[in-house]
Design a protein around this nucleic acid. Structure first.
Lengths: 225, 225
DNA sequence: ACTCAATGTAAAGGAATTGTGACAGAATGT
DNA sequence: ACATTCTGTCACAATTCCTTTACATTGAGT
């Protein structure tokens, strides 16, 4: 069973609700609407949406306020929030999505734009919503997925390369001696020529970027500088 | 009194300055901004920030150039530097840590991300400085990283030089006889001319500063006076 | 002051270590 | 079965490091 993603739209302008709502429904989403902040929060609690699109400027309770309340609700903490703002509006207000906003969209909105934006947000949500990845020098390791995030791009690495990277990455700056690397990545009983390490380091360097790894001659390697 | 951490933001795009600046201020930091490299350096010298966030791509003077100048300024050598780079930009240049950056962050930036990243960087620096304050005559040795801190500057030494320094440094003031040095650093079975020691001492003197090592004629060397 | 052995200094060769591309067997996917 | 990817090894190039060498300078003892 393929459950549709639920989207909650909060805006005080009925035209916007209708326009955006229509397009998102066409794209296959379940859309709910609310015409003010208070109603938006009630709605959010009852339908538990995947994504909330929130107008910043609303009478009584504005978008940022709504965002704060939703963020502090443990049941809704995973929900993605996107702000809707009028173009040219003061950036610093929009910047209020330190409260937990994930994106913002400027009005007037083209339907196609908003649909693709929503798709992107929902696609990204799985990895993003849990917690911020632990990035070190622009590199994050996802042990579950066996992948590496370099500059936001996901990259799959072969097992040995992954393990080697994981070892060095786990303690950036620490120098791992060649023997230590061997026993950690290859195990104590396996016998491989020492040059093997160099070759794998080279692979990592070419894939993740040179400069991420530092050679300490006669000793070993480290991640970072 | 709890002094706020000072952050200097250098970018030619006013939007970025505003967006990031706003969010960092919200997080409780003292934020200063500069809209080009030249101004950034002036600002850095006058406010002595804890962290500098530096756009790589800027007209006239780019981020790496600024970084180099700051790194060569003894009063600012302790400062943490993070680069801002556009996603997808070739970062091999930046990643070449010759530039001396401590981290880099990709644009477009989410406020949440940058705030947590800044926190992490500042946290790291603090622990770095409190956890290994074993300075002797302005020199600290970091065995794990295989580096030496001289007046706050991190320096990588070749293996033999590092071992020699470590030996002498471990007991400042104590005179190590030449034979003792040989057996400790080179081992008992290795045969090298005695002048080898002198040459290595000289290397250390030129790198760490003369005056740190004292010659005891006819006997050996010691660290300190 | 002089002497001479010890040390300072710079440069240069050689030694050791690492970088790199190509290759072959193993493992895996189709 | 075939193609693809992964893994480890090799040979050779590039680099860094170490040691030696040659000469200058120092300083303790006479």
């Amino acid at each position: 069973m393929n459950m549709n993603k639920k989207i909650l739209l909060v805006d005080d302008e009925p035209d916007i609700l209708e326009l955006i709502g229509y397009n998102l429904r066409q794209a296959g989403y379940d859309v709910f609407t609310a015409k003010n902040g208070k109603q938006g929060i009630e709605m959010a609690r009852s339908v538990n949406p995947d994504l909330i699109i929130l107008d910043v400027m609303m009478p009584e309770m504005d978008g940022m306020e709504v965002c704060n309340i939703i963020r502090s609700d443990s049941k809704l903490s995973h929900t993605i929030i996107a702000f809707l703002t009028a173009r040219g509006e003061d950036y610093s207000q929009v910047a209020g999505f330190d409260a937990g906003g994930d994106d913002y969209i400027t009005k007037p909105v083209k339907p196609k734009v908003i649909v693709s934006r929503v798709k992107a947000l929902l696609r990204r949500s799985r990895s993003d919503k849990t917690s911020l990845p632990d990035e070190r020098f622009g590199v994050a390791i996802d042990l579950e997925r066996f992948t590496v995030l370099v500059q936001g791009k996901e990259l799959a690495l072969p097992k040995k390369e992954f393990e080697l990277l994981n070892l060095l990455w786990s303690e950036p700056g620490k120098v791992f001696k060649r023997e230590a690397i061997l026993s950690a990545v290859w195990g104590n009983d396996v016998v491989v020529g020492d040059r093997t390490i160099d070759v794998h380091i080279r692979k990592l360097r070419s894939k993740l970027g040179d400069g991420l790894f530092t050679t300490v001659k006669g000793v070993g390697y480290k991640f970072g500088k």
